[in-house]
């Protein structure tokens, strides 16, 4: 049942830009944010809220821009190296941050990400300051494409990556490591007495979550064609938490459902009113009050009842 629902959803997503070409950019951006929100959701399993994950989103996008400036011009290589950049930044920050819990973890993530934001904004000679850096269109398998075709390739690549990476993350969450991650939230003492190093469980999760945010950042950089410090601003991090909570952390699809919903809602709301944040805020209130498991809870509940 789950496979059929996923296949139908992906098929609809694949066809939507054909019917409404303007949706292609919105959906690409939604998938990019979905990856980053999935990174946030991974940490939420351990009860850790990161209000700083936009840093990895931005680090990866800047990584793409720097690599492109250095002459790397292949989409695959740029994606791989930018994700590795985010993972490396995640490993360095994680070594320090995983020692903290609850509000301290959230605030320290926020603080570190704001330091990163300030560096991006102030180091004008290196990062272009608030003007940011261009992310040029790279070659795809050695072929230079025009912008419209590249954006189409990027969208369908994002869709495929959403499936493949989503499956990989699902396997991780179902593995002993994934269960140990959830167990951190319940009982760290018991984990230690099982001989399981809590720090290693959390560091691996932190690096995985940073890499996911990085993948999202790289895709967003390519889609927008530019990276600016606002990618790392704290409101962007809050936006990722919002997506994760809206979608639900019960399963991998939740992050993407939340991102798609929010991006589409945003696109629709701005055509109606300038106060689109009001509509988003009201939606969040409704979801928190009536759907504590997020939108994904609706699907998983239906699935459980159909068994």
């Amino acid at each position: 049942m789950r496979t059929i629902v996923t296949a139908v959803a992906v098929l609809i997503l694949a066809v939507l830009p054909v019917a409404a070409p303007w949706l292609q950019f919105v959906l690409t951006l939604a998938i990019a944010k979905g990856f980053a929100a999935l990174g946030v959701a991974v940490l939420l399993r351990a009860g850790l809220i990161s209000i700083g994950h936009a840093m990895f989103f931005a680090a990866s996008a800047y990584g793409v821009a720097f690599l492109a400036r250095a002459g790397v011009n292949d989409l695959g290589l740029l994606l791989i190296f930018s994700v590795l950049t985010a993972a490396l930044v995640g490993a360095i920050a994680g070594l320090f941050l995983i020692r903290y819990r609850a509000i301290f973890f959230a605030m320290l993530n926020l603080a570190v990400s704001m330091v990163f934001y300030a560096l991006c904004a102030k180091l004008y000679g290196v990062t272009g300051g608030t003007d940011g850096m261009p992310v040029p269109i790279p070659a795809v398998f050695g072929i230079m494409l025009g912008e419209p075709l590249f954006k189409t390739v990027l969208f369908y690549l994002s869709l495929v990556l959403m499936l493949l990476v989503g499956l990989a993350v699902q396997r991780y969450l179902n593995s002993p490591l994934g269960h140990a991650l959830s167990a951190v939230h319940s009982n760290e003492i018991r984990l230690e007495y099982l001989g399981i190093p809590v720090w290693a469980v959390l560091l691996i999760a932190y690096v995985v979550s940073a890499a996911l945010a990085g993948l999202g950042g790289a895709i967003a950089g390519f889609a927008i064609g530019r990276v600016v410090p606002d990618f790392a601003f704290w409101t962007a991090s809050g936006h990722l938490v919002l997506i994760a909570v809206l979608g639900g952390i019960g399963g991998v699809p939740g992050a993407f459902i939340g991102a798609l919903f929010l991006e589409l809602l945003h696109s629709a709301a701005v055509t109606v009113t300038d106060a689109w944040n009001l509509i988003v805020g009201l939606t969040l209130i409704v979801v928190i009050m009536f759907l504590p498991q997020g939108f994904y809870g609706l699907f998983s509940r239906k699935e459980a009842s159909s068994l």
């Binding site: 396997r171 991780y172 490591l177 691996i204």
Partner: peptide, 9 residues
């Protein structure tokens, strides 16, 4: 079994 791929179950 610290595999991140093989399931717990």
């Amino acid at each position: 079994l610290w595999s991140a791929i093989r399931p717990l179950d």
